[in-house]
Simulated assay, not measured.
Amino acid sequence: MTKNQIDELISEGVFPEPTEHRKLLETHISWVILCDRFVYKIKKPIKYSFLDFSTLERRKHFYERELVLNRRYSGNIYLGVLPIYEFQGQFIIGGDEGRVVEYALKMSKLDPEKQMDVLVSQNKVSNLDIVNLARYIADFHEHAKIIYDTSGIDIGQEFNDLAGARSFLTENLGSEYGDRIDSALKASGTFLRKNKKLLEDRLKMEFYRDVHGDLHTRNIFLLPDPQPFDCIEFNDKYRQIDVLNEVAFLCMDLDALDRNDLSELFIEQYNRHFPAIRNDKDKNLFIYYKAYRANVRAKVNSLRANSASNSADRKRALSEVKRYFELMEDYLCSLK
């Protein structure tokens, strides 16, 4: 579907149940429609180096993957995949009349005030919340599928994807970003060459699992029991990773929110339940993974800025690029 068709669906379309409110949230890869009791997520028909939603068949496949993968830990949030029909000039979610033009993932609507990033901003996340979350994620990781056929060194290629944003960032944030990208990529390459055996050993020691892949505060509710959602379905290699890479994202996010105390408490408690940091080399790897995660957020916000429909959204996304870029550099400078 196009953005104009999404707007038409929201204003005039037929939904499976009555709803007074229909609010659109947009990410760089999806449209999310918030109704009174349910949420409908629709994938954009896009193709990037890391995902391909370019055809209806591919999008349907990934809707179904998203449903199965998220049901591993999300209880009754993920309800099903529904077709969207065009019938007599109107878009209809569900039913069986007309031509299928898209699909939507139906989810239960949770209290937005209980989303972790909101609670952190209001200083409402307690140490007990973090202890419970660490235990929940550690238990999920402990029972997650073990991955044996991947290479941790591939993360270098993913880190280097930031180079693709060079021309956009130098044009919009200054020419110095070219040199800063080069320095970051060099530091990453040096670290990975020095620690190739460590990555290989961690694969053999079963630290690579099929996990969430996108674990940060905006993808967690505290109800007060922890409730992660919205894992990565579009690219297995982003989800089948070292568990330290997974929790590094959450800890980096907390660092970015100026809650280093919660970040440190989480990794301490997580490691108590699932000992993924065994020595100083692992601690150093954890810092590298945080740098990688800051790198990813800088890249994603660069994409968001590049596709922004107005100057205000573009400015906000560029501000986020700068913040995560600086955090990435701080982590890289602290590597030993």
Rank of each mutant, 00 (worst) to 15 (best):
G178P: 07
D330C: 13
V247K: 10
Q157D: 05
L198A: 00
L262T: 02
H212P: 02
E64Y: 14
L250M: 02
L69G: 01
E66N: 03
L24V: 09
K114E: 06
R259D: 01
D117F: 03
I277W: 01
K194A: 05
A134P: 07
E320N: 14
P45K: 10
P226A: 07
V32L: 12
S188Y: 09
A256E: 06
E113V: 05
E97A: 09
F234Y: 08
A276S: 09
D161V: 07
L34H: 13
E102V: 00
I146L: 09
D149M: 01
R65C: 09
D96C: 01
V120P: 13
D261P: 00
K44Q: 11
Y40C: 11
K43Y: 13
N123E: 14
A317S: 14
R193S: 03
P112K: 00
V14C: 00
I84A: 06
N172T: 14
D330M: 15
Y48N: 14
D236Q: 14
L110E: 04
L25A: 06
M252D: 10
D253N: 10
L303K: 11
T217C: 15
L198Q: 00
G80W: 02
S30I: 12
A138T: 02
T150Q: 07
R323G: 10
D139H: 02
V211C: 14
L105M: 05
V296E: 09
T19N: 10
E142D: 14
A187K: 15
L327I: 10
A312C: 08
A144L: 03
L185E: 08
A187L: 15
M205R: 10
K3N: 07
A312Q: 04
V300M: 11
V247Q: 08
I84T: 05
N4M: 01
P112M: 03
H61V: 07
Y40T: 12
R316T: 09
D225S: 14
S175W: 05
K336N: 11
V14T: 13
K106F: 00
P224Y: 15
A104C: 12
R22Y: 08
E233A: 13
F38P: 13
E142N: 13
V125C: 02
S54V: 12
A163P: 02
E26V: 14
L128I: 09
I77K: 04
D96Q: 08
D280E: 14
L265P: 01
K186F: 11
E102C: 00
R99F: 04
G75Q: 05
F207C: 09
K322Q: 15
E264F: 09
L133G: 10
L265N: 00
L262I: 03
F221W: 11
F38L: 15
A248G: 12
R37M: 11
K196A: 06
